[in-house]
Simulated scan of single mutants.
Amino acid sequence: MTGLTNLTIAQLRQTVGYEDGGDEDVMIVSSDKSTEWELFRYPCRLDAVVVALCTAGEGRATINLKECDVLPNTIVVNFPENIIRIDRVSDDFRGHIVIVSLKLLREARLDLKNKISVFMHLKNHPAHRLDPEVARHLQRFCDLIRECAEDAGSMFRKEIVTGLVGAFLHKCCDQLNNLPFDDERSVKSRREILFRQFIELLTLHHKAERSVGFYAEKMHVTPKYMSSLMKEVTGRSAAEWIDEYVILEAKTLLKYSGLSIQEVAYELNFSTQSFFGKYFKQHTGMSPGQYKMQ
């Protein structure tokens, strides 16, 4: 492997040869079918939102280099900008995975980035245990989605699946809204829009751009205003967000890509390996070489 893999739903389906009745906007995976867990043995990004529900057995995933255990009745939510790897699943693992494009999310009028407290919580804590009855209810949703997706004779299969997926995701949001978020701040609409726009731009450009000014210009605000806004809304400055994305990318490439330190520096648009080394050590307390050898 010589880089971080980025997959669309269409590429994922083609790679695993998975026929689920979905299309480029939705993919439904059930573990009692020939699920190709090996595909996620190495870190990758999916250009989609992933909602996974474990119904039996156990597993472990790493999201943004943080391990999370997946036990029965656990729901895991993964965003497109995240780097995910499946470390292991038990032989008796059972579950459902619903993979949804951002296009379908917009059509369903569902955008978690508009709910900043939910989005921030899931970024830091993507896995949550559910009440068993709630988990069974979501499982019935998944079974129905899969059944309708595989009904090749249905004239309105796409419309039915899209509607059911939207209902499933809204039901998940119902449960996520019940989580004990430590955020009682009221965020005005314009702030929500700017936060969402910043995260989307950061996801696209963090490998090439580390300047707050670059993102502020794209968003038509001043760097000072954007930094203070991000600090107020999320508790972290714009520069801290940028550094987090860059360091996460650097750590993943150093650990798993097979690239040399110089190649990683080039991949992340650092002018020299020395500059990259100083930046990395400033934010992690160790050199790229030390981290790579861990």
Rank of each mutant, 00 (worst) to 15 (best):
S228W: 06
R157F: 07
F275D: 12
Y291E: 08
E200C: 00
L4S: 05
S101K: 03
T35D: 09
R41T: 12
I84P: 00
R85N: 01
D111E: 14
V51G: 07
F156H: 08
K123H: 05
V165E: 14
V49A: 00
C54H: 01
H96V: 13
R236F: 06
S227K: 08
E249G: 13
K231A: 00
G213V: 03
Q14N: 05
D174G: 13
C148M: 14
F141D: 06
I116S: 01
D174C: 08
F93W: 08
R129Y: 00
V134K: 04
S227L: 09
F168K: 11
A238S: 08
H283Q: 15
S287H: 11
E150Y: 09
E36A: 14
L7I: 04
Q175E: 09
K66C: 09
Y245R: 09
H220E: 15
L130V: 02
L254D: 02
R236H: 07
R140P: 01
H125S: 06
C172G: 00
Q262C: 11
R109D: 04
A149L: 13
G289D: 15
I247L: 10
V49R: 00
L268W: 12
M1G: 11
N124S: 00
G166H: 08
S154T: 05
R146F: 15
L71P: 00
L201D: 11
V29T: 13
F93N: 06
G258C: 05
D174A: 08
F198G: 07
V233A: 07
Q14R: 05
F276W: 12
P180N: 12
E249W: 11
L65T: 11
M1R: 00
F280R: 12
E38P: 02
S186A: 13
S186H: 14
K123G: 00
V221K: 02
L102I: 05
M27G: 07
E81G: 08
A167H: 05
V50S: 00
S30G: 13
S227G: 15
V76D: 00
R236A: 04
E217V: 01
E200N: 01
F119W: 06
E263M: 08
Y18T: 07
V77N: 01
R210L: 13
Q139G: 05
D23N: 15
T35C: 14
H137E: 15
A61S: 03
G213D: 06
C54F: 01
M120C: 01
P223L: 10
L202N: 03
I199L: 04
C142G: 07
A208G: 13
